[in-house]
Design a protein around this nucleic acid. Structure first.
Lengths: 208, 208
DNA sequence: GTCTATAGTTCGATAGAC
DNA sequence: GTCTATCGAACTATAGAC
């Protein structure tokens, strides 16, 4: 085949390992071993560890944010009689990030996103700025449009909180099981998306 | 003095560095250098890196959760005519974690908490289980009491989201400035606490 | 494209002087 | 309590055979 699938194998393996151990905790050696390839091959495909990491962010965020942009535009077009609801807009934000794909890469990727969202180092800020600030500004603009009665500054904080809930609710889902002494566990992803949207919409409405 | 203050200096320095670089990204050498002590001294006081990390979690969480437990009990006692409001309970949860102390260690510590809350590795799960699950169960019990009309399972998710918002809104606050093109910036901590409580209360109420 | 081998650096931890 | 010195392992990255 033209494009080697060993490159995707490396990216997938690295994504999982970065999610579990963080950037510095996942070594190139460990990634190579888990992927079943030589360490040198990673450097052949991705050059450096920094670039491998950015490749992972790049491929997933471009897919997620392309869907978000498209669904957001559609939500405004479909609501011709007026404006989309807060829930309509939030679904376009949450669903592309969390919905079930062919494998559960979103689980791992969201974990990585959690790390860099919380981090204050140069690399993380660079990646968030490059891959997430553009779409963030789109959503803030959209929220301002559909919530004209809410102070502009509050919208920024509301968006900020929404991302916190989304990211947090994907990573470490095992905690629900721990806290409920095994009575609750992972569930249908659609229910999960609906609950997040409901919660965030309620939170946004309470910001006056 | 009896207790060396070099130990606290090491803990403070390590706390800041772990917050900025994560567990594996902050090396013992870097911590020693920043603290202005020999690397060997860290091992003398803390034995291993793992134990140093746990000491940081232990000293902060015990202070925060002692305050939480006390304020939560007080909230129920003071509301003798009935029950405390959702906001009353949330304030006892948020304030001890975020309110301004003598230095801004909460900013750094909350960042560390963000890392381990998102992580799925053995160390993180051990620490969350040991230092945070007991107080989490107190709050879930309290929320069930004051929201008897809400399905029990939803309360777990609501608590989960609340911690996501709290943790996320402390770390990387510089993003608000980026997203607003410099128009917004850090603000009064009391306003911040009130906004978080307002948002989370609105979210919890919308879970039926 | 994929491998092995290895250079050069940095890591956590310990030993031992003071 | 605090330091210096150092061991052995693990790290990223590269060189070069196939």
């Amino acid at each position: 085949m033209r494009t080697s699938n060993s490159k995707n194998l490396i990216l997938d393996t690295a994504e999982k390992l970065f999610a579990q151990k963080g950037y510095d905790g996942a070594s190139m050696r460990a990634i190579a071993e888990k992927a079943g390839v030589a360490q040198g091959l990673i450097h052949y495909h991705c050059k450096t560890k920094e670039q491998l990491f950015e490749m992972i962010i790049s491929r997933r965020s471009s897919e997620i944010n392309r869907d978000r942009y498209h669904l957001l535009k559609k939500a405004f077009e479909d609501a011709k009689e007026g404006l989309p609801t807060i829930e309509d807009v939030l679904f376009t934000f949450i669903r592309p990030a969390l919905e079930k794909g062919q494998n559960n890469w979103r689980r791992y990727y969201t974990s990585i996103l959690g790390f860099i969202s919380h981090s204050d180092d140069k690399r993380s800020r660079y990646l968030i700025d490059k891959y997430y600030n553009p779409i963030a500004k789109e959503y803030i603009k959209a929220l301002k449009k559909i919530m004209p009665d809410v102070d502009g500054a509050e919208i920024y904080w509301g968006y900020f909180y929404a991302t916190g809930v989304a990211v947090y609710s994907m990573a470490r889902t095992g905690r629900i099981k721990e806290l409920s002494d095994g009575k609750l566990d992972e569930e249908n992803m659609e229910e999960k998306i609906e609950r997040i949207v409901k919660f965030v919409a309620g939170g946004l409405r309470s910001l006056k």
